[in-house]
């Protein structure tokens, strides 16, 4: 187990370097002078442009810039934005927003997804199953931003049930955006659980358990659920990471100052340091989520042993 974990962590290093370098190179390759973007539509004298280029190492070759950046990053210094704000402090206020949003979405998809999935799986082929299956297909089919706008206008503006936008009202502000963000994954979770339950219902161990005369709820909870939820754990684990990077659309509609918005603005103004800073952290979250999921897998399924 230890050796496996260490090997996995070592394997992360090339992945981390690869992803951050690709993003850095892509932002670097974005045309245009980020410094000019600072002045909006007004002219900037050459002397000012020269001074700022020097300050932000913009005239170095790509690899040198990247190396300088990474060397600092590993000491916890992700550099400065072109507005002179440190990237760490620029992100400081943004992480909690996205993290909370993703968490609400995640809990929602976990609770609602598993419930619906189990329900449908146990009633496979019946009416409930068909309704749930149809409903989840529909959720996947309607684009997230359409759902988001409809929800905002109906539940926020017209019926005034939820705050329209922003994060001023604490956790309450996160409910509606969280549900919208989680709905897409909810559909996947529900379907995954449903299939898994349906498959396991016919497994030999289930027949044995029933034959032993165990009470029905015990069969379902102890045997069926435990075995059926293994693939769901994988999905949910990895999904927490993708929820965070996928929050962009929802953040835009609901005016939440999260990292998704930060990234969008940073790309538009070619703030390389900010984009790479966010990427690095997102990739790290993704990699560790994967690792934890794999380790958890071994715990949940005794047949799997890591050497």
């Amino acid at each position: 187990m230890w050796r496996y974990t260490v090997r996995r962590i070592l394997q992360m290093i090339p992945v981390l370097i690869g992803t951050t370098f690709i993003i850095y190179a892509m932002v670097f390759a974005l045309p245009g002078d980020p410094i000019q973007a600072l002045a909006g539509s007004k002219p900037l004298p050459q002397s000012v442009i020269n001074a700022l280029h020097e300050r932000y190492n913009l005239d170095d070759p790509l690899v040198v810039q990247y190396a300088k950046y990474m060397a600092n990053a590993f000491q916890g210094d992700f550099g400065e934005t072109f507005y002179g704000q440190s990237v760490t402090s620029a992100l400081e206020s943004r992480w909690p927003v996205t993290l909370k949003l993703a968490l609400v979405a995640w809990v929602f998809e976990l609770v609602a997804g598993v419930t619906l999935g189990v329900w449908a799986g146990l009633r496979r082929g019946k009416f409930t199953d068909r309704v749930i299956l149809g409903g989840t297909t529909l959720i996947i089919a309607v684009p997230t931003f359409v759902v988001a706008y409809s929800a905002q206008l109906l539940l926020g503006v017209k019926w005034d049930i939820f705050p329209v936008a922003g994060t001023q009202e604490g956790w309450v502000s996160y409910i509606l955006p969280g549900i919208v963000l989680g709905s897409f994954s909810l559909a996947f979770v529900a379907r995954l659980v449903r299939t898994s339950i349906a498959e396991n219902l016919r497994a030999d161990y289930m027949r044995t358990a029933r034959a032993k005369g165990l009470p029905k709820h015990r069969v379902v909870v102890r045997h069926l659920l435990r075995n059926s939820l293994i693939p769901v754990v994988t999905y949910l684990g990895v999904d927490l990471g993708s929820l965070m990077s996928g929050a962009l659309v929802v953040e835009a509609v609901f005016n939440m100052p999260g990292i998704g918005q930060g990234i969008f603005q940073a790309v538009q103004t070619k703030q390389g340091t900010l984009v790479v800073g966010v990427t690095t952290i997102l990739v790290l979250i993704y990699l560790f989520a994967n690792l934890i999921v794999d380790l958890l897998y071994g715990v949940l399924d005794p047949r799997i042993r890591y050497e």
């Binding site: 600072l38 002045a39 007004k42 002219p43 900037l44 004298p45 050459q46 002397s47 000012v48 020269n50 001074a51 700022l52 300050r55």
Partner: peptide, 27 residues
Amino acid sequence: GPNGAAANYYFANIDGYDALNPEEGKP
């Protein structure tokens, strides 16, 4: 110039501005 101020050009009509903002090198 080297201070990199965004509103730098607002001062361009004051006498002596060019000496603070050469095209290249330090003023």
